[in-house]
Design a protein around this nucleic acid. Structure first.
Lengths: 340, 340
DNA sequence: GTTAGCACTCGATCATTGAGAGTGCTAACA
DNA sequence: TGTTAGCACTCTCAATGATCGAGTGCTAAC
């Protein structure tokens, strides 16, 4: 026995219904509500029995309806992705309204995007701050802040890589710093981060006097690469509305994952460029998330720098809505951040 | 009738018990477990009846025990604050372990502090980034980032007020920007933020050519006062473990508050310098938080700049533990951030 | 002023019951 | 041979009611 056209249609109907109601779906429902070729519930029942045998459906207990398995969702999203669903005008408008285009700082843009996505989809959104892979330094600037401290700004082709306060020699005047900035810009201009490291060590050896400054810059580059605090979450509370997490123990475990940066990143990352990654249930690799799915997608800024946007929801997520939302937002983000 | 020594002791015992168990406390429990002067449950009952009349106790229904009212908690925390409880060595050690002292960036320190506090207290922690009150501008610097964009850095006596990307005229060269930086620094140096506003409008009128830049600076000043992205939350999930929020609707409302920066700030702010503010239930001023208490405290960096740390938990919070934790952390934070 | 005793209240728990939804199987039908 | 009607069966869920126990308030005695 194998999958045929009719089985497939029935399966899709079951998934659609389960996504909406979160209740096991019975044969009668499919027959009445979705009327696949006017088949009776008995026929549907036979087909459902087959689908269960094929591993697409689970039955919580006899005499409940059936619920889709991970395998079923997999098939479902593959079909969806092939189909390429569209974002409705209404949703485009809503996304626009929620998204604050006046935000200027990268972090603000990201935070606003996370909020917009979560508000529109009613799931939890995760957005990572873009990170250059092979970005090149364009400019280095030190701004005096106080005795012994200066703000270091690293500018790359794709925008600000990092700005952070570093320690400097207390005797350095603003003019000194300006001079050093010029020197560093000259030396590092056009180099990738990897190259910068080597170069800095070399300069550090050469100019013993500014060792402290150089060390600060080096540390900032390393941090910029690893990236601290580079992921924002929006709509944490949204997840609590789904019956899947009405058990507060489950909800807690889930929220804890959302507070652990590393786990969060592992969930959302590894998305191939410009295409979706969908992880369903156990595929997420995080035990606490076995009842969740994660849809993620990378976005590009210019040619090099990429970040990720993702949505976390129950396995019975409305994939068909989430996918176009992410698709749209990835484009908006890419454009908006280009000139930051 | 009024409060006397014995009533007070009984009330304290009731509060202690309720804090631990979250269950209405009966007269028998007090008589057996806390044995106030060997009184029988009947006597305690009479006293409890009086305490209810005085407004310190509520009764969910006849034949349940009683629970402390807001007024009771008020009295309780006043007593605690007068007593001045100490942080145990064990807890000091745990705080140290959880707190990452290697963090260098202000944001990282703050985030780490929030996590440490929430891990140790098992409540939710809120920490704001320090902000100067009567700071004066010391320096203004524009760093070129890309065509039409520059990073604006506002430096005050207490450090960086704000750095943000603003739009500038596309034709401005790095040299131009440097020049403008010098001019602005000269004009604004030594002014308070309020004065800066007036001055900027004046300059804007004078120098029509750089209007776009001036506008950007002005916007940054206003934002810098309000302060963006300056609050961190740790241990959101902790709250879900308390029976008060086992109802997922309540939990959702609560989490939503934690996602709204403004509400969060209003909760935690307004703490007088170096002393505790405790808001119990409705005193928080946020309807969704009527079953929560917020304990907050400000910490100082140097003489001017202050931030706030706070803990959010159920009204039956373990105040006696939370207070010394905050006390300790406020000192640690103040010291640690002094040299950033 | 304190305490023992007792009637009373009210929520929590548990078993019972009936309704409803859904299944699997069989036999009849096209 | 595939489809369908029918039916017995299973299992959950909600409502019902009985019982239990914790706790109170009151009274009378100490």
């Amino acid at each position: 026995m194998q999958m045929d056209e009719r089985k497939s249609r029935i399966l899709m109907a079951i998934i659609d219904d389960y996504i909406m109601t979160a209740m096991p779906v019975g044969s009668r429902t499919i027959s009445k509500k979705y009327g696949i070729g006017g088949l009776s519930s008995a026929t549907i029942r036979n087909e459902m029995s087959d689908l269960e045998e094929l591993g697409y459906l689970d039955q919580p207990h006899t005499s409940a309806g059936r619920i889709p398995s991970t395998k079923a969702y997999r098939l479902y999203v593959e079909t969806l992705l092939r189909g390429g669903s569209e974002l409705s005008d209404d949703e485009t408008r809503r996304l626009r309204n929620h998204f604050d285009r006046r935000a200027r700082q990268v972090e603000d843009v990201i935070a606003s995007a996370a909020r917009a996505i979560s508000d529109v989809t009613l799931y939890t959104a995760v957005v990572t701050v873009p990170k250059g892979q092979t970005t090149r330094i364009r400019r280095v600037q030190l701004v005096p802040v106080s005795e012994g401290a200066a703000l270091l700004v690293l500018v790359t082709d794709t925008g600000i890589l990092r700005d952070t306060v570093i320690r400097v020699d207390g005797q350095l005047t603003p003019d000194h710093l300006h001079e050093i900035s010029g020197m560093l810009t000259e030396e590092l201009h056009g180099l990738t981060l990897d190259e910068v490291r080597g170069k800095l060590s070399e300069i550090g050896g050469r100019l013993r006097t500014h060792r402290k400054v150089i060390e600060g810059v080096l540390a900032a580059v390393e941090q910029g690469e690893g990236g601290a605090k580079d992921v924002m979450v929006g709509g944490r509370a949204n997840l609590l509305q789904y019956p899947e997490y009405s058990d507060s123990e489950k909800a807690r475990a889930l929220l804890n994952v959302l507070e652990t940066r590393e786990k969060l990143l592992s969930l959302v990352q590894g998305a191939p460029k410009m295409s979706f990654t969908i992880r369903i249930g156990d595929e997420t690799g995080v035990p606490e998330m076995s009842e969740c799915s994660v849809v993620s997608m990378s976005y590009r800024i210019g040619d090099e720098s990429t970040g990720t946007i993702g949505v976390i929801g129950p396995t019975r997520m409305q994939y068909a809505r989430v996918i176009p939302v992410l698709d749209y937002m990835s484009r908006v983000l890419g454009e908006l951040l280009k000139d930051t």
